[in-house]
Amino acid sequence: MTVTTSPATTSTRAGDRRPPALGGFSPAVLGIEIRRVLRNRRTLVFILIMPAVFFLLFGLPQRGQNLDNGLPVTGWIMISLAVYAAMVATTSAGAAVATERALGWSRQLRLTPLRPAAYVATKVATAMVLGLLGVLVEFAVGAASGVKLPVHVWIESGLTAWIGSLVFAAFGLFVGYLAPAENVMQFMGPVLAILAMLGGLFFPLDMLPHVMQQIAKFTPVYGVGQLARSPLTGDGLDWVAVGNVAAWTAFFGLGAARLFRRDTSRV
């Protein structure tokens, strides 16, 4: 931010008038946004503490059990819960636009030079930072609890869980532009839990009846979960999972873009 120290006068001020760089997107705003989210205790519990506690409750009892390829079951659970942490984090960050619309902040922003695209970019960036944080905390808890995996699995699964959560950032934005409610995460929490279950993050899908398994493959969490675990399970590239992620990203992304345009053009 640049400032002039001399008192502004009408004649010199005209020269200072310029629109912001990058439409108003800035790392400083991103920093304030992230601090703002981390200050919210409820959000912290949902995106950082709960997934970690889930691992301690449901992962640790499986210690000593191995997958067919000899890698630990706790690794399977840890990666699944890392995807869960990332999806909750990115969804809630995206859905924050609902709160800001309900509060009238979006309207206030329209009286500033901030470009709507820069606003959304900030929200997505915030979501991705929080998603990364979710993955890292889950992995840290796993590592501290004795999960041992090859280095490439840590890296590949971690990156996939993180980047894959982009689909949920889009999902959050989609919901945020759909529901102008201040407490949108209160009903999104249970929805995410059901999606995570259907996506096979809480238990292997082969525990479900066959019909449910087939339906589950079309739900939005399935693809990311499968892909994030594939470095661990050694399964090759699962094209059903890739198609799932691509389709849902396109659906939520385009849906959010459409609602966003409707919202910003409503003058």
Binding site: M1, T2, V3, T4, A8, D16, R17, R18, P19, P20, A21, G24, S26, A28, V29, I32, L109, T112, P113, L114
Partner: peptide, 12 residues
């Protein structure tokens, strides 16, 4: 501070 970043130029 946040709002200040939305402008090209602001007062302190």
């Amino acid at each position: 501070r946040m709002t200040a970043h939305f402008y090209g130029h602001t007062r302190p």
